[in-house]
Amino acid sequence: MIELDEIDRRILLALARDATQSAGALGRRFGLSQPAMWRRIRRLQEAGAIKGRRLRLNAEALGFGVTVFLGVKLGRKGRASLSDFERAVSAIPEVQTVEHVLGLYDFRLRVVARDLPDFERVLRRRIMTLPGAGEVEANVLLSEERLPGPL
C-alpha cells in the first residue's frame, strides 16, 4: 500500500473528476512545478493507485437507450467453468462490465442495448447461448443518480 499525503489525495480527486488535465495545469493548481507534478503522477501510477485513464462515452447519445443489470447463475458448473463463461461473455460488445460475485448469482453484468427488443435479442441469442448460462435476473436501469467517483 502506498503512503499518500494531502497533495496526493487532492491530485487523485482532481484526476478522478477530469483525467484530461495536464500536469502543468495541476501543478499550477497545487503549487508545484510541472516536473514535480509528473513525478507525483508517475509515482502514483507505478504504485498502482492510478490504474489508467478512461474515456466515458454517453451510451444514450450513441443510441443505446437501455441499460440492464443481469444476475447470471451458471447452470452447469461441471461442464463449463467460471472462467469459460467469463471469457465468452466478455467478448459480447453490449456487455459493459462482468463482475464475478458472491451470493445468489455467480455473475453480475451491465448490458446496454438500443431498446428492450434489442436487449431481448442480446439476451436470447448471445448471453443465454453461452456455455454454462443458467438462471438470469434482469433489472432495468431507470436513472443513475451518482456516477462512480473516487474512493
Rank of each mutant, 00 (worst) to 15 (best):
residue 10 R to S: 10
residue 43 R to N: 08
residue 92 I to M: 11
residue 29 R to F: 00
residue 103 G to C: 12
residue 10 R to E: 14
residue 20 T to Q: 06
residue 4 L to E: 07
residue 108 R to I: 03
residue 50 I to M: 06
residue 18 D to R: 05
residue 37 M to W: 01
residue 35 P to Q: 04
residue 57 L to F: 13
residue 51 K to E: 15
residue 141 L to R: 11
residue 148 P to Y: 02
residue 92 I to W: 02
residue 67 T to C: 07
residue 65 G to F: 09
residue 106 D to V: 03
residue 30 F to W: 00
residue 140 V to S: 09
residue 55 L to F: 11
residue 26 L to M: 11
residue 31 G to C: 04
residue 146 R to W: 03
residue 8 D to A: 10
residue 63 G to Q: 09
residue 23 A to I: 00
residue 61 A to G: 10
residue 144 E to G: 15
residue 128 M to S: 12
residue 78 G to R: 15
residue 49 A to N: 04
residue 9 R to L: 14
residue 21 Q to N: 09
residue 128 M to E: 13
residue 106 D to M: 03
residue 100 H to T: 12
residue 34 Q to L: 01
residue 50 I to R: 03
residue 68 V to T: 04
residue 77 K to D: 02
residue 46 E to G: 09
residue 119 F to A: 02
residue 68 V to P: 07
residue 45 Q to L: 10
residue 103 G to Y: 09
residue 108 R to A: 02
residue 115 D to I: 07
residue 71 G to K: 02
residue 40 R to E: 11
residue 43 R to E: 06
residue 79 R to W: 05
residue 42 R to Y: 10
residue 124 R to H: 12
residue 53 R to M: 10
residue 83 S to N: 13
residue 98 V to N: 04
residue 34 Q to K: 12
residue 113 A to W: 02
residue 61 A to H: 06
residue 72 V to Q: 01
residue 35 P to S: 08
residue 114 R to Y: 05
residue 42 R to I: 15
residue 124 R to Q: 15
residue 6 E to H: 08
residue 2 I to E: 13
residue 15 L to K: 03
residue 19 A to G: 15
residue 72 V to L: 13
residue 28 R to G: 09
residue 57 L to Q: 11
residue 117 P to M: 10
residue 72 V to Y: 03
residue 137 E to S: 14
residue 145 E to P: 02
residue 124 R to I: 00
residue 9 R to Q: 13
residue 86 E to I: 08
residue 103 G to D: 11
